[in-house]
């Protein structure tokens, strides 16, 4: 067992982990941050996406020890400082970008990473960026729409309500 410490959602977090403990296990089991989901265990589905030092990372593909000293952000740390939903979260709710919701945290985290690097992505760029996030329920249309809306773009063209 090795000691690991990092900043998670702005707060210091530490614990004892094995060398092979994945970041997602550390977040879910040690810190109780269960909003980061495990959908495939093998880095395909994107349900476990978190941000490590601002970059989107699948938390099932990195060891907890690799995040030593890093700034980690999870879905639980995405709300506005006053606790209200941030613009991406709000857009997923308003534009029905979820059904079972299991993919949603990963989708929101990927969307946030995309918008940080490309504030006004085209529909095509969004679809491209989401290649690593599987959603089995929605058919993606409303997810794409939610991200377009969150980036302040007009979505009336995408589909009527």
């Amino acid at each position: 067992m090795t000691k690991v410490s990092m900043t998670v959602n702005g707060e210091a977090a530490e614990g004892e982990v094995e060398g092979r403990t994945l970041l997602v296990e550390f977040l879910r089991e040690e810190l109780g941050l269960t909003g980061t989901h495990v959908g495939c265990d093998t880095s395909q589905c994107g349900a476990c996406v978190v941000h490590v030092d601002g970059k989107d990372v699948k938390a099932c593909t990195i060891f907890a020890l690799e995040a030593e000293g890093a700034e980690v952000r999870t879905i639980e740390g995405m709300a506005n400082p006053d606790g209200s939903l941030n613009v991406i979260q709000q857009a997923f709710q308003d534009h029905h970008g979820l059904q079972c919701g299991f993919c949603t945290p990963g989708m929101v985290m990927s969307a946030a990473a995309l918008l940080a690097e490309n504030p006004k992505p085209s529909e095509h760029e969004i679809r491209d960026y989401l290649e690593g996030n599987i959603c089995r329920c929605t058919g993606y249309h409303n997810i794409v729409k939610a991200i377009m809306a969150a980036s302040g773009q007009d979505v009336s063209r995408i589909a009527a309500e």
């Binding site: 879905i75 639980e76 991406i88 709000q90 997923f92 029905h96 979820l98 919701g101 949603t104 945290p105």
Partner: peptide, 14 residues
């Protein structure tokens, strides 16, 4: 056309 009942909890991971 109301959102899913738990939409707010899905988007914040709770």
């Amino acid at each position: 056309p109301l959102p899913h009942d738990a939409a707010a909890r899905h988007v914040d991971g709770s």
